[in-house]
């Protein structure tokens, strides 16, 4: 496999060159079941999924579909009840610690310390990944510029707008240049400008060969950004493939949102 270093908008990756590894599975989930203690029903119920290296994979589903639980198991945060999960060749169910340096996680919550500044937050998470000294300072400065926070770097996160917090949250997830980035609703509740900048950053990451799993409620986002998507409900994958093809194969559906509603129904999910 031919590998080259790529520098684009501050994201440095060891990149699988086009056509050289897109078929390698970054994530392979087989027969995954997760049942929480005290619950009769499985939140994830026999889920099968494959995410290839270098792609942006959209995980779509209504509330309670099992997206966050699936991502938590993939990231080693939760133990599966049964089934297999391989991430970048490692069995996460048996060795969750082995993928930690390869994985970046951008949770749905603003998982930053509100009373620390953006720079202090990024420096802290960088140190947790083994970055120190000048390399850490340079990486933090670079990322702050990439996410448009260089002028607010020394302000506390608690003083940021929603969009600024989301951008800082993304930066914290990629500080260590992970091979796989897992994003759980990274654009919830922010303005169009911040969303635009986050998309730009994600495309740059994708261009650098980064593999991403992207859970979202926004169908339009997924259609624009993702190379493939999986629509899931009740803990199972209902349909997966490139969004354009999935829409085309469904008569009467003009876009991903219509397809999503047809598959998951219009009843409210609380």
């Amino acid at each position: 496999m031919r590998i080259a270093a790529v520098r684009d908008r501050g994201y440095h990756y060891r990149l699988n060159m086009p056509g050289q590894g897109m078929e390698t599975a970054a994530i392979r989930v087989t027969g995954l079941v997760k049942r929480y203690n005290g619950s009769d029903e499985a939140t994830v119920n026999g889920l099968d999924l494959e995410v290839r290296e270098g792609e942006i994979f959209g995980l779509l589903g209504p509330n309670g579909a099992g997206k966050t639980t699936t991502l938590s198991i993939v990231c080693g945060l939760l133990k599966a009840t049964s089934g297999g999960v391989q991430v970048l060749g490692e069995d996460v169910t048996r060795h969750p610690g082995r993928i930690k340096h390869l994985l970046g996680f951008v949770p749905q919550d603003i998982a930053l310390y509100p009373t620390l500044t953006a720079r202090e937050n990024l420096e802290f998470f960088g140190r947790m990944h083994g970055l120190y000294g000048a390399a850490l300072k340079a990486r933090v400065a670079e990322l702050l510029t990439v996410v448009g926070l260089e002028k607010s770097a020394d302000r506390r996160i608690s003083t940021f707008s929603g969009g600024m917090k989301r951008r800082a949250n993304l930066a914290a997830g990629v500080i260590h240049q992970p091979r796989l980035l897992v994003l759980d609703e990274p654009t919830v509740g922010i303005d169009a400008q911040s969303r635009g900048l986050i998309f730009e950053n994600l495309r740059a990451l994708s261009g650098a060969g980064k593999t991403m799993v992207y859970a979202t409620h926004y169908m339009e986002e997924a259609q624009k950004l993702c190379t493939r998507v999986a629509i899931m409900d009740s803990g199972r994958v209902l349909l997966q493939g490139p969004p354009g093809r999935l829409v085309a194969e469904r008569p009467g559906c003009r876009n991903l949102e219509e397809l999503f509603l047809e598959l998951t129904g219009r009843s409210l999910r609380d």
Binding site: L103, D109, Y113, M128, A172
Partner: peptide
């Protein structure tokens, strides 16, 4: 509650 504990658990620490 803020999610930082979750993020910490995904880190190699």
């Amino acid at each position: 509650d803020g999610g930082t504990l979750v993020r910490l658990r995904t880190l190699p620490v």
